Lab assay of single mutants.
Amino acid sequence: MEVRTIKVFTTVDNINLHTQVVDMSMTYGQQFGPTYLDGADVTKIKPHNSHEGKTFYVLPNDDTLRVEAFEYYHTTDPSFLGRYMSALNHTKKWKYPQVNGLTSIKWADNNCYLATALLTLQQIELKFNPPALQDAYYRARAGEAANFCALILAYCNKTVGELGDVRETMSYLFQHANLDSCKRVLNVVCKTCGQQQTTLKGVEAVMYMGTLSYEQFKKGVQIPCTCGKQATKYLVQQESPFVMMSAPPAQYELKHGTFTCASEYTGNYQCGHYKHITSKETLYCIDGALLTKSSEYKGPITDVFYKENSYTTTIK
């Protein structure tokens, strides 16, 4: 009895394709271990004539594949690729409408935090270190965002349907971005203890939790000093293409032309909904596939993004 075979390709990165001759009487799992086709788990399936010449994702289970996976995804987590594939199996079914010149995501599976993050990423200057993220990001900007969303979920250790947080998501993504040249110098002034300067680099240099107003941050924000008295913390120097200011959701007025974009969060910790506000020729609110415009805006804002380049204080 002759062994019926077909020729397929296996890959971990969709760049390096490895030619395989597979036995049609055995499952993919018996031949390769966990195997995925377009995100779908085909591990328990036997090869079919229609699979001839198709590319299958496999887990990096030998040295060659491990090197290829690390170079593309910059992670050695053995569960990463499987999590990416199972997320992709959902995100490829989502709709990605162009809204006001940006790629958004039609609401499904509690994905409003991903839509808000995706919209924000198209408006701030950011370059990702893992080629996987950078490639998928370019495709997302062009309207094909399924891979990018699935990668975000995998890097953030999230599953489809789980509630997510924009600030946490951005923080994970910033860790995989090139923020080497970003720098922030802060000064804390206390009447009792004097003053202390701190220099922050990388992710810490672009994120701040405690106030939404970048102007206020430049002037000074009140913080408790270690001595128990009130101290003032203010920005001395900022070198970065953008800054992200966050605070627990509270009524906040966004003035046209003073910011790049913002995240609105309605609801409580267990259950809520994100919308995205962007400042173009007027203010726009993007909620999944829905767009509304207004000249002014007041609502429960939790993150505001500002364009920056270089700032030095005039406070002496």
Rank of each mutant, 00 (worst) to 15 (best):
V3F: 14
R4G: 13
I6Q: 10
T10C: 15
V12E: 08
I15H: 15
I15C: 10
N16S: 10
L17W: 10
D23T: 13
G29T: 03
D41N: 10
D41L: 10
V42Y: 12
I45L: 15
I45P: 05
I45S: 12
H48T: 10
H51M: 09
E52R: 13
G53C: 11
T55Y: 07
V58Q: 07
L59R: 10
P60K: 04
D62Q: 08
V67L: 15
V67H: 14
F70N: 09
E71Q: 11
E71G: 06
Y73V: 02
T75E: 08
T76Q: 15
P78G: 12
G82K: 15
G82F: 13
S86T: 11
A87L: 07
N89S: 12
H90W: 11
K92P: 04
P97F: 08
A108L: 05
C112Q: 06
A117N: 04
T120P: 02
L121Y: 04
E125F: 04
P131R: 07
P131D: 02
Q134Y: 05
Y137C: 07
R139D: 10
G143L: 03
N147G: 11
N157F: 06
K158R: 07
V160S: 03
E162C: 04
L163Y: 14
L163D: 06
V166S: 06
R167S: 04
L173R: 04
H176E: 05
N178I: 01
N178D: 11
K183L: 12
K183E: 07
N187Y: 06
N187E: 08
N187K: 13
V189R: 09
C190M: 02
T192V: 13
T199W: 04
L200D: 11
K201R: 14
T211M: 08
E215R: 06
F217Y: 07
G220Q: 03
G220H: 03
V221W: 06
V221R: 04
V221A: 03
Q222C: 09
P224V: 14
P224S: 13
C225M: 01
C225L: 01
Y234K: 10
Q238M: 01
S240C: 03
V243R: 01
S246T: 00
E253Y: 10
H256Y: 15
T258D: 13
F259A: 00
T260F: 08
C261I: 00
C261Q: 01
A262K: 00
E264R: 02
T266A: 07
T266E: 10
C271A: 10
Y274W: 01
K275T: 12
H276M: 08
I277R: 00
T282D: 12
T282W: 08
C285W: 00
D287N: 05
D287H: 00
G288K: 04
L290R: 12
T292L: 09
K293W: 11
G299A: 09
V304I: 13
F305H: 02
Y306W: 03
N309M: 10
N309H: 09
I315M: 15
